[in-house]
Amino acid sequence: MARKISMKQAVNEALDQAMAADPTVICMGEDIVGGAGGNGEMDAWGGVLGVTKGLYAKHPKQMMDTPLSESAYIGAAIGAAACGMRPVAELMFIDFMGVCFDQIFNQAAKFKYMFGGKAETPVVIRCMVGAGFRAAAQHSQMLTPLFAHIPGLKVVCPSNAYDTKGLLIQSIRDNDPVIFCEHKNLYAHECEVPEASYTIPFGEANIVREGKHCTIVTYGLMVHRSLDAAAVLAKEGVEVEIVDLRTLSPLDMDTVLESVTKTGRLVCVDEASPRCNIATDISAQVCMHAFGALKAQIEMVTPPHTPVPFSPVLEDMYIPSAAQIATAVRKTIKGSK
């Protein structure tokens, strides 16, 4: 192997292989091709950050640009999914969910249950998440908890290129609706990725670092911040175990509980706003199911309860840092019974 590609390339390769393998896989979204109907070149953009660049040339019938009309095309992707297609709709930024949320949470999420189990809606909605792009309050959010809250949806948020490819192919083959969250600040992150097609099952967290003193449960970009914190802590003799959830719904609580039972300490790191987020959910479940194992209070590291600010100085303060994570871990060590 040893072939390294970026997370951006991993998305592209997953879509490429999925479309080649299955003609019912279609991609739609705003400017995912770029240049439609103009007099210049087609595939002018390949997505706003070039993630889907080159796919149009290989799969012209499966790559569709849409009008700037999220309600219509996200709903259309869901309708097509209910009629035998496997659409992958790109919503560009998760922040745009506001204008098409009904189609996702009232339609796609509920068809199966509401129709007595007789519907299948194998749709994937890809969207960029996360802060750090100087993109301000409406293009930077980590809204994963909103979707994890809704029965019927699956929510994926990978932290590296290998997981991205395997989880995206799994999302496309999965028969339930999937919200696939790509952290825009990880697109350039590279790691070893097999060229062949493969899938990573949902609901299996990844232990990215083993340690015995404290468990950090996190996902997405925060996995990397946590690794940075762990490197610092290791020099202090504190060995941190990092659990990368990978999928937020379904959630691999077994791995979290096993780890906390081993370490006796828990720090939840979540880039989402602090109220009712993944960190609070994990904390509550650990309290319920592994309270006896805890040697110290649970710590959470999240942004403050504010919108994402624009000024780079403010935004950098907003995003949880490795230093904050390390401080939280130290607090659990110090505060131990």
Binding site: I26, I74, A76, G79, C83, M85, Q103
Partner: peptide, 15 residues
């Protein structure tokens, strides 16, 4: 809500 959904159904029909 049916508007977008039926566009999807029709898109599938077109395929």
């Amino acid at each position: 809500a049916g508007g977008p959904l039926i566009c999807g159904a029709a898109l599938a029909a077109k395929y």
